[in-house]
């Protein structure tokens, strides 16, 4: 456990020694802020419109959760899909290219400790990314009359974190198969995107196959959480998804050693 923490700390430091930490955090805030601003703005126009046209029933159906927070979460998910592979791309690829992997592999560390340490560092970074976006719900709580409900916000964030963890595990795998960071980024991005949109043909396919595709989709699993439906199957899905990719990464690293 101590060793995992030592590796994680080293990685976390290196995000902020290189520009990558600052670039990712600031661009992520700019883009997510843009999404938030536009949803809040649209909500405002809708409220004004229905008030002017005196339709109290419709007006009552408007709420900040459905019209601002849920769509924003959907977009944050898409942003994570792009940004997280950029965070993970160097984690193992760079160790291979700089040959520092020889140091790690000849130190008294288990390969699993190296992988989990690096994974933990991404999770902490992900928490920072999501932490920055917490400003938006806070704004809604301060200025919204009535404000949003808090439970769907909490479950939504938990969902974002879990999907982020899944993307990070895929990104880590992509980083383990190459020495080239660009290749790692492309593979990580494509794989996580694939799991994001894998359910697209589900309605057309239908039947069991359609159910499977729906079940595999990172996006589909997230929708429930964003609306405060907590389903243990979803948590099992996320945990086994991450575990599977970390396990494959472990195999790849051990294989690299034998070669």
């Amino acid at each position: 456990m101590k060793n995992i923490w030592k590796i994680a700390l080293k990685e976390l430091k290196s995000y902020f020694v290189s520009p990558i930490g600052y670039v990712v955090l600031s661009l992520f805030s700019v883009l997510s802020g843009w999404f938030f601003f536009n949803h809040a703005q649209r909500f405002n126009s809708l409220v004004t419109f229905y008030m002017m046209s005196r339709q109290p029933e419709t007006l009552n159906q408007l709420n900040l959760n459905t019209f601002v927070i849920v769509p924003m979460f959907q977009e944050l998910l898409m942003l994570l899909n792009v940004f997280l592979p950029a965070v993970t791309m160097r984690l193992i690829a760079e160790e291979k290219r700089q040959k520092t992997i020889e140091l790690l592999f000849t130190s008294p560390l288990y390969t699993s400790e190296i992988i989990l340490g690096k994974y933990l560092s991404v999770l902490l970074f992900l928490a920072m990314m999501l932490g920055l976006t917490a400003a938006y719900p806070v704004i809604l709580f301060v200025y919204g009359r009535p404000g949003p409900e808090i439970i769907p916000i909490i479950t939504g964030y938990a969902g974002l974190f879990m999907v982020g963890a899944c993307i990070a595990s895929v990104g880590l795998f992509a980083s383990s198969i190459t020495e080239n960071q660009i290749v790692a980024f492309a593979v990580g991005l494509s794989l996580s995107l694939l799991f994001y949109i894998i359910s697209m043909p589900a309605p057309a396919v239908g039947g069991i196959m359609g159910d499977i595709l729906n079940y595999l989709s990172l996006k589909g699993q997230f929708n429930g959480l964003a609306n405060a439906f907590i389903d243990t199957r979803v948590i099992v899905y996320y945990a086994s998804f991450s575990f599977t990719w970390l396990f494959i990464t472990h195999r790849v690293m051990e294989g690299f050693r034998v070669r």
Binding site: S14, V17, K99, E102, L103
Partner: peptide, 8 residues
């Protein structure tokens, strides 16, 4: 090749 982290 000495296994050095150049950013440390």
């Amino acid at each position: 090749n000495p296994p050095l982290y150049t950013d440390m």
